[in-house]
Design a protein around this nucleic acid. Structure first.
Lengths: 189, 189
DNA sequence: TTGCTAAAACTAATGTCATTAGTTAATATA
DNA sequence: TATATTAACTAATGACATTAGTTTTAGCAA
């Protein structure tokens, strides 16, 4: 194709291609070379849309966090706060990571974790969890500690599962559910 | 230096250099080029000792898991089983990851997670935790679920902390300790 | 002691990346 | 209709891993 084609690529198309690449082949397959090949352009052309590979990864992180947030919000919708909402959130979290293994990697490994946009995207998710644990009547600081624990549990399980870190032939869904239940139970006075 | 120097490098020296590189600069700095520069040799020379970069990473994973195991075992030593041992283990886990941020990365991201040696090294650590929760009188399957939860919590917190994923200015050590305590409490009948 | 083997370094070359600079053609705008 | 901008391109550079083939010397056997 010659310069300036009728229909130019837009950011969204590129994001989708990158996400597909990540999910189908693994996050390490998100390279300018691979992405360009998938889009039938040459690698340097990508610089017209993104600030190099770090730029793509950063936007992929934000994209991933937003998709994760949407999945969680949708699932929490309608559930009553407390145990029910927390179980729904944790289940949705795991489901998202399983359906989007490559994309999930980017959600938690932005080039610069202090990046404002990345941070904002993460904060929204924290808000969902904060809201879910309202009924426990925790003080503000206690609530933050609780959310940190819950996030650690969800991310840790997800991450270990994806790395194949669990060896025993014992149902993983049950392990996850029991772990979240135990944590919730321990949270209550 | 010319071919065949008086004192040749040995595997252990290379491992130490690689671990240092990882801890001081980050795991992504473990490249043949960097490692060779640090050791004052040329990159191809490393192939005399290791099976390429994947080989080094694999051995680094085993090395890291063994160091982690030693730290944990040492800390569990003398503690009575149950709450005390679990708190000691979880604290040692976090301490190890903080002291060895780069190396810790390799512990849980071996090129092939199904690798026999990597797996064995991980199994020893699971054994420590299994032993620590003995007093809870869990059935075998329950115990495995519990260990999975505990590992998820420890790895998740560690991982999120290292990525700078916790935004709020609230004591992290306290969050960790409270989370582990809550989980333990929830584990009990 | 001498000669051979194998180890551990080396140089040179290849291929894959990301990235930069500069070019071109077609769309969008004035 | 003329111009500016956009989005593609080619060409070149430098970092990296890796392979092939070479060289020197340490360690061992005859």
């Amino acid at each position: 194709m010659s310069p300036r084609p009728k229909i130019a690529l837009d950011k969204n198309t590129i994001m989708l291609a990158a996400a597909e690449l990540a999910n189908e082949n693994g996050s390490e397959y998100v390279t300018l070379a691979m992405l360009a090949k998938k889009l039938n352009i040459k690698p340097p052309s990508l610089y017209n849309h993104f600030d190099g590979l770090p730029g793509i990864k950063r936007e992929l992180a934000i994209y991933s966090l937003e998709k994760l947030y949407n999945s969680l919000a949708k699932e929490a919708q309608g559930k009553s706060q407390g145990d029910e909402a927390i179980m729904a959130l944790s289940q949705a979290y795991l489901t998202f990571a399983r359906k989007n293994p490559g994309l999930y990697d980017f959600a938690l490994s932005a080039p610069d974790p202090a990046d404002e946009f990345v941070h904002d995207a993460g904060r929204k998710i924290v808000g969902l969890v904060i809201s879910a644990i309202q009924p426990f009547g925790l003080k503000e600081e206690e609530a933050i500690h609780a959310v940190r624990g819950l996030r650690s549990l969800m991310h840790g399980f997800t991450s270990l599962e994806q790395k194949g870190g669990f060896g025993m032939p014992l149902d993983l869904d049950e392990s996850y559910q029991l772990a979240v239940e135990a944590f919730i139970k321990g949270l209550k006075k």
